[in-house]
Amino acid sequence: MKILVCLSNVPDTTSKITFTDNNTSFNSAGVQYIINPYDEIALSRAVELAAEAQGTVTVIHVGESSSDATIRKALAVGADDAVRIDSVARDAWFVANQIAHYAKAHAFDLILTGRESIDYNGAQVQGFLGELLEIPSISIAKKLDINSMEASVEREIEGGKEVMIVSLPIVVGTAEGVAEPKIPNMRGIMTARTKSLQVLDPIAVPVLSKITHYDTPAPRGEVKLIDKANVEQLVQLLHSEAKVI
């Protein structure tokens, strides 16, 4: 079984989010980057599934060489090889086209993405990939098992969950529950250095949309503290002032 895991490189969850150039671009100065937490889940599950089925795990990332440390970390966790499409990840449509282009030439059985990236929160790449590759895509998977060439996926739906059976190949967007993120061990870190990281040129993709400006949300006013002996006052305020009950 051949598994492809799509990795997004995102600011560490504690990063202060600021912008430069008159609030037109993200300020990456001093920001620590990590594997998107959902992609870490995808990667961990991929490594487990590959071990069960004697398969292979390839990780793919669309980005510049500054992401190589993140890619090496994925190799240390257990991916067999890596591909980087050497370009700024302009937007989800661009990224999905790059990945689809690569995937078409390499016949993967299973393509995993995170449910969304924690920077642009698009949750788009997974559906775009399904469409571009003309295969089923399942978003927000909470469980993923493979039995020969069939996947059983538990998917989150409005107010519940759904168990689906689908033949490979498929694209799955993974969420919490699919696997526990794995921490690379010493051996993993050592072998990661010797694994292949192939760098490929991007294909041309038309620009359909573009972020032109960022704003930071207005800060809230000072908190109004209510005495714990007087909870009725809170109820009153929620009714008459905040008008939420």
């Binding site: 989800a92 449509w93 999905a96 449910r115 969304e116 929160n121 698009g122 949750a123 788009q124 790449v125 997974q126 559906g127 775009f128 399904g130 469409e131 571009l132 895509s137 399942i138 978003s139 927000i140 989150e156 739906i157 409005e158 359909l208 949309s209």
Partner: peptide, 24 residues
């Protein structure tokens, strides 16, 4: 809607129509 199902649908619909997608 950019709901659980909407997230699965929106990119596929956009790709089919060659449309720009404004998600969320």
């Amino acid at each position: 809607a950019n709901s659980f199902s909407g997230k699965g649908l929106a990119p596929r619909v956009a790709a089919k129509l060659s449309a720009a997608l404004a998600d969320g």
